[in-house]
Design a protein around this nucleic acid. Structure first.
Lengths: 230, 230
DNA sequence: TGACTTTAGTAGCGTGCGGCTACTTATTCG
DNA sequence: CGAATAAGTAGCCGCACGCTACTAAAGTCA
């Protein structure tokens, strides 16, 4: 079974668990972004983000990946650390400190070996205060990183249509994008390559399949952006 | 390794240190960016970034601020968490985990109550591997955040010339900026307000003094940036 | 067959940002 | 009075981005 640090799984000298690794797993669920949660132990904590403790000589990120794997049966498509959270906010376990991670997984048919339920990112009531903070930070981090890493591409099969890619972006970013602008920016960045395959399905004009091709990076140097300050 | 005198002069408060808070303090030192270091305990660790342990019910960030205050006698102008670092890399103390913070301080006359020395960001040899990682991440985080927080403004007195502001940006970013573009972007963001004061010093045309005036935020919404991928 | 619907994909206009060169303005020094 | 030095501005050019409006290719249904 899975190791659960809620009761101290580190018996050494009666000291409490010093920190946990908590992971926020996002995945597209039928036109909505889902967050993987488990049922919580008490009324106060009805929902719980997956968390655990690194094994000896296991890195933080590998620990996060293992938590996802153990829970869903699959390797996450992308994982990144969000930060360390303490600052007095209560955690489900009584750990003083939690390291937050954000992860994304491809969409899967329901109930596919997945223990736990998928919640909406705006409905995170029932999480302990600290996990609530972690979830918020994870969503922000995800959306920030979308510009820098090919996250959306890893949620799609090797071949995909540009409409599918755009829908994935819209789902993760939580906002609509403009079709022509999206495609123009894509081509300017040399990120995709057309294939000879065309989708033959349903009504409407067939869509061409593309594949990810991380070619050259455009320099992307700018001066200073003052318009982002708060 | 476990038995080596870890972090002399660090109060361990009874139980063994489970994690540390490490802070990377940047400050302008005579046209170059400086990083605050202390003398290390051994030949292997000739230099040490300031680090410590949170007191009971002290938040991580407050702990970082205290470390800076205790070492320099002043409050840092800006502090932000960089992340959690473990992953097997050795630390000066034998803590399993370190939370990294980045801080900036205004320039000060040399030796002003400051224990420790200012090293160049490119000369960080002598740090333990984990602290080396933290320092690298701190510099990256600093330069990323410059667009989002008025960091440079806090390094300057309330009244400053635009040339001083630009030089501060150039120092922190580690690259030259174009004068006209810098000023145009500044004015478009309504970030500064001219005062009636003028600098009367040296040769050349006098410079007008400005002050920080965080007015409105321009929406700043864009579509997707594909040109930042790696 | 031909009109209508549906989805994919493109053209091109307008605007605003950002990099650049080149200029003007104001002061000190000799 | 120049020459030197530093502050500040004007304006061109390219390009990224948002938008509207168009064309293209399939299915559906009378």
């Amino acid at each position: 079974m899975r190791d659960r640090p809620a009761a101290p799984s580190r018996p050494a000298s009666g000291r409490r668990t010093s920190f946990t690794v908590d992971v926020v797993v996002f995945s597209p669920r039928a036109q909505v972004l889902g967050v993987l949660c488990e049922a919580g132990p008490s009324r106060r904590d009805r929902r719980v983000l997956p968390f655990g403790v690194p094994r000896p000589s296991e890195s933080l990120e590998r620990c996060a990946r293992r938590l996802v794997r153990d829970l869903t049966g699959e390797e996450p498509a992308w994982v990144e650390q969000v930060g360390a959270f303490a600052d007095g906010k209560r955690h489900v376990s009584d750990a003083e400190l939690s390291i937050g991670f954000v992860a994304v997984m491809p969409s899967r048919p329901d109930g596919d070996g997945t223990r736990g339920e998928w919640a909406a990112p705006n409905d995170l009531a029932g999480l302990s205060p600290r996990q609530r903070s972690i979830a918020d930070a994870a969503l922000t981090a995800l959306r920030t990183r979308m510009d820098h890493a090919p996250i959306a591409f890893r949620l799609l099969p090797p071949q995909f249509t540009l409409t599918e890619l755009q829908q994935t972006y819209e789902l993760l970013l939580g906002k609509r994008l403009h079709k022509a602008s999206f495609r123009r920016a894509l081509q300017a960045a040399f990120l995709v390559q057309p294939t000879d395959e065309w989708r033959s399905e349903g009504r409407g004009r067939p869509a061409q399949f593309f594949e990810f091709s991380p070619r050259k990076r455009r320099s992307g140097r700018r001066g200073v952006r003052f318009d982002l300050m708060g």
